[in-house]
Simulated scan of single mutants.
Amino acid sequence: DHFFQGQALRLYTPLELSFSASKLRNMDALSKSDPMLVVYTKMDGRLEEIGRTEVILNSLEPLWITKAMINYQFEIVQPLVFRIYDVDTKYHNTPLKTLNLAQQDFLGEAFCNLSEIVTKFNHSLTLNLRNGSGHALQGTVTVHAEETASSRMAVDMQFHCLNLDNKDTFSKSDPFLRVSRLSESAVAIPICKTEVIKNNLNPVWRPITLTSQQYSSKDDPLLVECFDFDASGNHELIGSLQTTIAQLENLYNSKAGANFYSHKGQKKVRFQLYDTIINKKLLHLTSRRNQSVFS
């Protein structure tokens, strides 16, 4: 396994940690918990915060996009602590960095050493949540580690769709896209999510930027999923597409598009796909440029 390959005099490897959780406790009466994860390192008995995820609304099965960066130091024990909180609605507009964790509902915590994640076959580790006294709580947290890319390139792109399938009864779908990178073990790691466009079957989302640290290489597989947003957190999948940055570039250069597929037998979804210029496809890359992230 050459996942972490050291070099002479190289004492650490920079890693990116991704997080998800399952079967969390529901702390809200009329909706579901709004979970956020905070990760710490433990040094000399003290906790040092290294990152916070975004808040996922109304979800007991959160799949966070925000990553945490950490240096994996060989032959050194690096304890990690993961704590999950249900963020109260009145704090949803508060910047994450200034959010007072003591004012949020505690959903549980888990512990491990960084080496336990790294040495797993697929570099993913699932841990049971516990309370502050160490007693078992409902729910698990999964942590996935990947070595970060050294390239500083980025890609700008803009997606739009036409004639999406309508999943709502009294209105139109509220679509958004989620882009994930597929790891070698086929784990889908979310790297980007568009905004929700309300009541629209022909959405044009704001441009997004993906760095090579997020998509790894132009030929590594990506999963693009289109969902109909639901305020309850039960977003309905409209269709999905497996592709690469290189394939998206070819689609743009050829003025072509790509079909979404349903998860039922991997068949094309029944709605027609279109391109904005030649009216043939649905998913279309309207702009792309490489640039350095650093000026």
Rank of each mutant, 00 (worst) to 15 (best):
F4N: 14
V81N: 11
Y274S: 12
E75K: 03
N128G: 08
S287F: 08
P95V: 07
Q272Y: 05
L273V: 04
T53C: 09
F4G: 14
K218R: 07
N279A: 11
Q73P: 02
A231Q: 12
V55G: 04
N199D: 15
I70S: 10
A68T: 08
N163K: 01
D230G: 03
N253I: 07
S183D: 14
S254V: 07
P203E: 03
S240K: 00
T94I: 14
G134W: 07
H2N: 14
A68I: 04
L107T: 10
V179T: 12
T41C: 07
L222C: 12
T244N: 07
L30K: 13
N71Y: 08
Y85T: 07
V118P: 03
F294Y: 13
I84Y: 03
E146R: 15
N71L: 00
L177V: 15
N93V: 04
F227G: 03
A110R: 06
I50T: 06
F229K: 08
I76P: 02
Q103M: 13
A256Q: 10
Q247L: 08
L164C: 00
L201A: 00
P95R: 12
S115K: 08
I208T: 06
A29F: 12
T98N: 14
A29D: 15
E147K: 14
H263S: 03
G233N: 01
K264V: 09
A68M: 05
N253L: 13
N279F: 13
F4C: 09
T211G: 03
L9Y: 03
T209G: 01
Q242F: 09
D1Y: 10
S173T: 15
L182V: 13
K167D: 01
D1M: 12
N250C: 07
M69V: 12
Q272P: 02
Y72M: 09
S18M: 05
T98E: 15
N199W: 09
G51N: 05
S59I: 04
E49M: 15
K255L: 14
D105W: 09
L162M: 01
Q214W: 06
D174L: 00
V187A: 14
D165T: 10
S217K: 13
L285S: 11
V204Y: 04
L17C: 08
N58P: 05
L37T: 11
Q73K: 13
F229Y: 15
A188L: 09
Y40S: 13
M27L: 10
F106P: 07
Y72A: 12
A136S: 14
N26I: 10
P190V: 07
V179D: 03
L9I: 01
T276A: 12
K218Q: 11
L282I: 08
L251H: 11
F159E: 08
S262L: 01
K167A: 00
A231C: 09
S217L: 04
N250H: 11
L15N: 09
S150F: 02
T243E: 04
L222N: 14
